[in-house]
């Protein structure tokens, strides 16, 4: 049914993890400098860089990249639900 990788957990090499960490630190620096530069850039950076960081952590640190479609789909459902809740509340707040 499932490959050995999923059954026993995939091993991610330390070098990969270190590179991901490096990317996360760079993105953080980018985020901070963008928000110091201008308010508009700050909002843009928050909307782009923050999810990118979260994606890296999910993908590599949490091994989602190596999981089967089931877990990936479940994560998608959960995230989508939260996004829908937030955006539907703005049907009220945004148009009062």
């Amino acid at each position: 049914m499932t490959s050995m990788d999923q059954e026993k957990g995939h091993i991610v090499e330390p070098a990969v993890l270190a590179r991901v960490w490096g990317a996360l630190v760079c993105l953080t620096i980018g985020l901070v400098s963008a928000s110091l530069a201008s308010p508009k850039l700050a909002v843009l950076a928050m909307l782009v860089i923050t999810p990118a960081k979260a994606w890296l952590v999910f993908h590599y640190f949490m091994h989602l990249k190596y999981e089967g479609p089931l877990l990936k789909g479940m994560v998608l459902v959960a995230l989508l639900t939260l996004v829908i809740f937030i955006s539907m509340m703005f049907l009220d707040l945004g148009f009062r």
């Binding site: 957990g9 953080t28 985020l31 901070v32 928000s35 700050a42 950076a45 928050m46 860089i49 923050t50 960081k53 979260a54 952590v57 999910f58 640190f61 949490m62 091994h63």
Partner: peptide, 30 residues
């Protein structure tokens, strides 16, 4: 047999992800 370690790691990473969002929402919202 290391699934508990993997699961603890998952929890720790999620706590990290939440902080990743808290940083721009509070500290960088100026």
């Amino acid at each position: 047999d290391c699934v508990v370690l993997e699961n603890s790691g998952l929890y720790w990473h999620l706590v990290d992800v939440i902080w990743i969002f808290l940083l721009p929402l509070f500290y960088l919202a100026a």
